[in-house]
Design a protein around this nucleic acid. Sequence first.
DNA 1: GTGAAAGCGCTAACAT
DNA 2: ATGTTAGCGCTTTCAC
Lengths: 347, 347
Amino acid sequence: MGVTIYDIAAQADVSIATVSRVFNGSPRVSESTRARVEGVADALGYRPHALAQGLARKSTGVVSAVIPVLTNDFYMEVLRGIQDAVCARGLDLLVYSALMPEEVDSQLGRALQRGRADGMLLLSTPVDDVRAAQLEAGHQPIVLVDAAHPAFDSFTVDNVEGGYLAARHLIDAGYQRVALLSVSPEPPPARERREGYERALRESGRTPEVYASAHRPYGFSEEAGYEVMQEIIAGGNLPDALFAASDLQAPGVLSALQDAGLSAPADIALVGFDDVRVATFARLSTIRQPMYTMGHAAADRLLDRLDTPSLPPTARQFQPKLVIRATSECAAFAPKSSPQHGKTALA
Amino acid sequence: MGVTIYDIAAQADVSIATVSRVFNGSPRVSESTRARVEGVADALGYRPHALAQGLARKSTGVVSAVIPVLTNDFYMEVLRGIQDAVCARGLDLLVYSALMPEEVDSQLGRALQRGRADGMLLLSTPVDDVRAAQLEAGHQPIVLVDAAHPAFDSFTVDNVEGGYLAARHLIDAGYQRVALLSVSPEPPPARERREGYERALRESGRTPEVYASAHRPYGFSEEAGYEVMQEIIAGGNLPDALFAASDLQAPGVLSALQDAGLSAPADIALVGFDDVRVATFARLSTIRQPMYTMGHAAADRLLDRLDTPSLPPTARQFQPKLVIRATSECAAFAPKSSPQHGKTALA
DNA sequence: GTGAAAGCGCTAACAT
DNA sequence: ATGTTAGCGCTTTCAC
């Protein structure tokens, strides 16, 4: 069934050591034997056995990515970046995704198992010291994306700045009551976005107004956005503008508005966060974070660390960018139907 | 660094065989030794080494999924189904995704390498006899999703029926000129959808009118839909209704319409295919295929086949479902802005 | 330049 | 119920 180096060795009349040398590009093989071995090998259709190779080499050729709830364009984009980077270096990618945030630790455990992968990318998973200990016990290089901890490399976007940009934009556009739609419990990125938002409001002498969805299992979802917006509408006291802490809730907000016969920006301006695909389509103003780039850079870092484990942990922060589309056009300039919806080619 | 069964054996004063038995739940271990071994094991923080285990057991505990271009909600949903099913059985998922359709074969080769995975799920990859031979040479159980070949299990949606449903719906809704937006080259699913579409048109005595995008690298994309729709608009001879062969192009179509000051269904009705997330949001009428379910069912089949390799190849076809949303509301209820087009022939 | 042999960490007969 | 031992397929000293 499986051709082994023994088969090749026998046919080529050399030892298995020589066959191994040939496949590992050792210089200590004569050209003639090399040719002979290679000939036999692909006559037989030999492919090395990944497990055996891994066991002997003490490395798997695999890296893992642990992702909470895969249902999500943000992770999808990050994952693309990861996949591309990993694949470019000839490694394989093992994907662990949890169904619920609570499952993350069990997925982590599996990903950390010895012999599964050589390193791990951990997405959007807050790392406290307890979890950090668990991770370090795995003795694998680990890189964090959309989360940070001093003991590990991390790749994040400046969420505080993003929150500030969003709020500042709405304030500058002339909106008076600028509210925030966040989630509860509040993960670190949401907290940071809120901080930026609050700073912008304080700067202009206003009072923050925060709504938080406690939707289960996941506050960052369209359903959650829909529900909260519905409640706000029902409350009868609509703010002028809303900053949704993620693009995942924003479509829900828009739907709720639509169902109530309202729209953005006519009745309320809206700015999201992330700039996932649907944002372009929904003409949603938003704060862009370079998802693909972050994934790619994080994976590259992990791969470097695989070669050089002693690299010092580095925190790299990307700058978010305000993308103004239709849902927050300045009240003054808003000729409500103007189509400035370009095709965005992306990184 | 790594705790092995030898360490445990030494500390618990038993042989490695006994330790192994404990971890494999063998009944032939006394309760007292079992307890002792387990005690030592988790005092030492033992975790079995996946590679060594796999090598000895001749199985990896991993299945792979090969996916062309991950940038796509369709695959994302299917992948979720796969991930959930695989995870539920305690296996891990290796994801191979190509950047371009041309890379698929090299990814296949890697996924097929001995010792990488115990089985493979192949998505949206047409399998001809050449490829079938390559796949069979890997001696792994393989299950196809969104593609079919007699030698393998396959999970597909009835694309012909889907195409028929879409066209029939538009015709029944009173639209006269019903065109199709497809891709070129035309993969099997697109061809089947066209077949259904053409049958519906013939049944009602009309002439099919087909537009095909040759957008690179991938015709099933928003950009492709945008471009083709722009050309159709530029042609100045708009059909009454358009059936887009996938939801990935449909948003592009809608954007092109919007940019031209047109809209659906007022100026042209639109029906897509897939029912991905954005379809709900775009209020796009579409043909739903059960993506999550297909992925889950396919993975379940693969896992069954892992236990029972002799299962006969089975082709399971799911029924598509017409989902009527705003973009194809019956013409009677959606007064057109201007009846500027007579009844003329095709592109 | 090539071969012999000792692992890598575990499983699974085969003993006892 | 437990121990001994031979692999699994490959890499890698260490000799020659």
